[in-house]
């Protein structure tokens, strides 16, 4: 029995379930917390691929920063909105939750996730991606080198994109203040 495969399936199930809960949770904070679980699961898959650097960056950026920002945004949003959500929960589900939980909408993410998992499994079992060609743990240096040489242009474009988004956010915030 291939233990790596078993771990992979367990992780995959956790990720899929967490992702499902993200879109169906009636309480928005629960959605954020399930998102954190899903992201940590993805980091686990990176770890399995011996991409420690990616795994840690995944945790650092997504759990450490993104989820925290989401939580922050939830807590800064007016209480009224959160309250309405809770009232809806008592009556059953939110409009969004009801829609997603209904059969056709609920199956779509699950099906997409299953497809993704199947593809990953296929790739993994075929060893189609040469994940083992880099000595384990030494991924940081080649990664940094290729980012600064081969992929310099995409890297810079991505940075500019983020910068634009940041400037845009500031502009929106200032306009909202007036």
């Amino acid at each position: 029995m291939n233990w790596q495969l078993v771990t992979f399936y367990i992780l995959g199930l956790v990720i899929l379930y967490a992702a499902y809960r993200v879109v169906t949770s009636a309480v928005i904070t629960h959605a954020a917390l399930w998102l954190a679980v899903a992201l940590v699961g993805v980091a686990g898959i990176y770890l399995q691929l011996q991409a420690e650097f990616l795994a840690i960056i995944q945790v650092l950026i997504y759990v450490g920063a993104i989820v925290t920002i989401i939580i922050f945004a939830i807590m800064l949003s007016p209480l009224r909105e959160i309250k309405t959500e809770e009232k809806d929960r008592r009556g059953g589900a939110t409009r969004m939750g009801r829609a997603v939980a209904s059969v056709e909408w609920g199956l779509a993410p699950v099906a997409a996730g299953l497809l993704f998992a199947l593809g990953m499994t296929w790739a993994y079992s075929r060893q189609a991606w040469p994940v083992g060609s880099v000595p384990p743990g030494l991924i940081t240096e080649p990664l940094g080198k290729s980012l600064m040489t081969t992929y310099l242009l995409p890297f810079e474009v991505a940075s500019v994109l983020l910068l634009v988004a940041m400037v845009g956010a500031i502009v929106l915030a200032i306009r909202g203040q007036k």
Binding site: L33, A36, E52, F53, I56, I57, V59, L60, G64, T68
Partner: peptide, 18 residues
């Protein structure tokens, strides 16, 4: 003996706030 121990420290401490 992680190769990226420094990053690991930063990553796991971010769980605390969660």
């Amino acid at each position: 003996n992680l190769n990226i121990g420094l990053l690991f420290v930063v990553a796991v401490t971010s769980f605390e706030v969660l």
